[in-house]
Design a protein around this nucleic acid. Structure first.
Lengths: 192, 192
DNA sequence: GCCGATCCATACTCGACCGTATGGTATCCA
DNA sequence: TGGATACCATACGGTCGAGTATGGATCGGC
């Protein structure tokens, strides 16, 4: 889009590179993370990059750690603050379903699971989210085994949906149809 | 594994290259599909490759079409042959769950959804499978809307499971635990 | 207003991989 | 059995992107 149409005259920091890297990853995947391309996008050259980072690998590492930090703390804390445990699941589903941007990096990293650097990050993030889901299901009344398996199922459905509708463009589901799908999901995955 | 430990003295055909390509894709992903690497693995050189195929792109295309052909016809026809519609879903779930190999290429292609050549193939395959699931759910008693959404949910759970447990190595689930998960999945996704 | 540190540009090297050119060897068949 | 065809090796050219070397510009503190 904007090749070099940014009037930023300030000099760059490592964080600027990391943010740009995350944006590029979200847009075109980890494989598209090339330093010269990033430099062009930022309006500078490689010379700048190799002052801030020792290697391309280091940038990827820093960007991933930065992304992991940003985290999903707000959502988790807000859901946990809800008084009625049974009301948490539908609320969580609806919130997650109606945010698009936060899932774009996750979806991109999902496609880079062959890359050694992203595996541990994704393992940690996915594990944390699944544990959160498990406790929510427990508090909603499921016995531990059921809660764990239901959390696995729910999170798998989330991940699969990202792949099928985000990345792949299966018969582009409409907005109303999507809402109906979310409600159907709530009905079948939430303990009655 | 077997670098060049194959005593094959016969000459190669285009199908041999396609099969080797699919095996390599299943093992290391589409990105690892390089002609010189493949040639080494087959015990020949590039000279052979460029006699059978005009370009690397052509090989990938042929391999994808070959994979799409192999298909899942056996499973589908066998499931459709079952007399009791309500018994089809559990059987389908259990069969799919206990085969590993057939899903490896699909899982690898899932991670290559940014590649223009694999998108249409995956779109067709996924679409066919989802339509199959939808009719099964219809025959099991769900009204059309419910059947479609349940199929979406089920297939998303399948795709997500591949990513989370196949590619990513989330806390390596045990065999018994996996069986319990499958049964849980049958209970919650199958119309009672 | 000078100087050291910070930030960036330019110009290279190097390796990986695609594709081409061309000649060699095996195989089949008239 | 000899030649056409199918299959393969060797060697080369070209591109793309990572990383290096080095000098220039800019900024902050004194």
């Amino acid at each position: 889009m904007n090749a070099s149409a940014k009037p930023e005259r300030t000099r760059l920091s490592a964080e600027d590179w990391e943010d740009a890297a995350l944006k590029l990853i979200a847009d075109q995947g980890v494989g598209a993370l090339a330093v010269e391309a990033l430099a062009r996008q930022l309006g500078v050259t490689k010379g700048s990059f190799y002052w801030h980072f020792r290697t391309r690998e280091a940038l990827l590492q820093a960007a991933l750690e930065r992304w992991e930090q940003y985290g999903e703390k707000e959502v988790i804390s807000q859901i946990e603050a809800m008084p009625d445990p049974r009301a948490r699941l539908p609320e969580l589903f609806r919130r997650v379903a109606h945010e698009l941007a936060p899932h774009r990096v996750y979806a991109a990293l999902l496609k880079a699971l062959d890359h050694p650097q992203v595996v541990p990050v994704m393992a940690r993030v996915s594990q944390r989210r699944m544990e959160f889901l498990t406790t929510i299901y427990s508090e909603a009344g499921l016995v531990p085994d059921e809660a764990l398996n239901r959390a696995r199922l729910t999170y798998a459905a989330y991940v699969g949906f990202l792949q099928l509708n985000f990345t792949l463009g299966l018969p582009r589901i409409s907005h109303d149809e999507f809402d109906a799908y979310v409600e159907h999901m709530i009905r079948t995955l939430t303990p009655s």
